[in-house]
Amino acid sequence: MSAVAAKPQAGGAMNPTAMAVGVVMLLIIIALCWYVSPGAGLMALVGVIIGGVLIGFGTHFVPVGGAPAAMGQAPGIATGVAMLAAGAGLAGLFGGAWAAEQGLVIATITGGVGGGLMMAITCMMVNFVYVFGMGIPAASGKVANDPITGDSQKEFKSQGTEGHGLPFVSFVGGVIGGFLGGAGGTLIYYQLLKLYEATLPTMIGVPLVQVMPIAVAAAGMFAVGLFLVNAVLTAYNITGTIEGPHDPKFKRWPRAIVASAVASALCGLVAILIVVPM
């Protein structure tokens, strides 16, 4: 047997002790940040945590099919969470980064629209390939009727598969997921960029215009790193594949919220420490 064939049976159960430890860790990290950089640093960290949680939560909406979807045996887009979330998030991040000069709200929404647009195009082209290329209809294996349109799914599902193609609810889920992911990634980038713009000139001792490339690159790299960490942690939460918001695995999201918050706080603290004088 290969590693691809066997799916792990990670339970859907919560682990209350570990969740409590996670929340305590989160508070400790926030306290540490307040200690080293009470003003701008703490604000940036809060933004980073919100952004990370948005990414972690949004990834649950994206219909990730993995290898079975590539063979038309499971619904969803035929690749892994890391690739999909990174694609949607980075598309959003690049979109939002252009709008960073126009303030927090416009930048975040632009990032969200970028990510949502990317997912909408991907979902549509995936369905084109499924329907016209592979000749299979869209059918969910997890629910009897599509929760949005109410269409019955059972008649279209082939025997021996878990469903195939992208049902309407998965499409909508993908767009929502892309929007949340793109907005979260942009929020992280924006918060770190503003922090670096405020602190790097005094730290290096040159005018702002000269350190801008470094501020942009550092904020961008940290945003990409945080994005990948959050996306992969969410992938672990849903053990690789999910159909969309109607999938029973979607109910595991509280775990991912805690996990993303702790991971983003940890990585965000490191990103903030780089501009704290030592």
């Binding site: 590693a3 290898a67 992969v232 992938a235 672990y236 690789g240």
Partner: peptide, 12 residues
């Protein structure tokens, strides 16, 4: 068999 594909490990 973590189920998320090998590339995700390289990304994290």
């Amino acid at each position: 068999g973590i189920g998320t594909g090998v590339p995700s490990a390289g990304m994290i």
